[in-house]
Amino acid sequence: MSKKLELPSASRAYIKKELERYETKESALIPALFEAQKVFGFITPEVVDLLAVEMDIPPSRVNEVAQFYTMFNKKPVGKHHIQVCTNISCAMVGARETANYICKKLGVKLDEVSKDSRFTVSQVECLGSCGTAPMAQINDDYYENLDQQKIDKLLESLK
């Protein structure tokens, strides 16, 4: 049997505060899911159950929110999640080539986790960085106007 999941006390305190922050406690679901993802890396059925108990909200409600939004990972991702926008404006300036280049450099296919668990490369939809393309969002931060030289340096700094 796998170990029972537990939220660290700081996360529990954060969720408790969020539960009281809005007019309805369900509004705390998105913040709580972000917090749980920070702790566990991705949202599994076990994480959903844990939050359901913690927040006293039915698991089905927690799950539907987790499933609906793309930022909640449903499977493991690397420590650095490199998300390259390949929507229209980015595609026109070579973002799909950028994504391929990053994959090749790291020796991974799209959406897979690198063997050392450090990287996942994904193609994503518009991130509102169309004038500074090609670009990638790595975890919470944007990296813009990418070219091969910049990417080489960036990947080196993330190693």
Binding site: S27, V65, F68, Y69
Partner: peptide, 26 residues
């Protein structure tokens, strides 16, 4: 107050945005 979404283009539609803020699917 400020509220952070979680990735869904459709939430830009105003009634979807309201659903999302209420902690539902957008």
């Amino acid at each position: 107050d400020v509220y952070r979404g979680a990735g869904a283009y459709i939430v830009g539609e105003e009634t979807a945005l309201i659903s999302s803020l209420e902690g539902k699917k957008g």
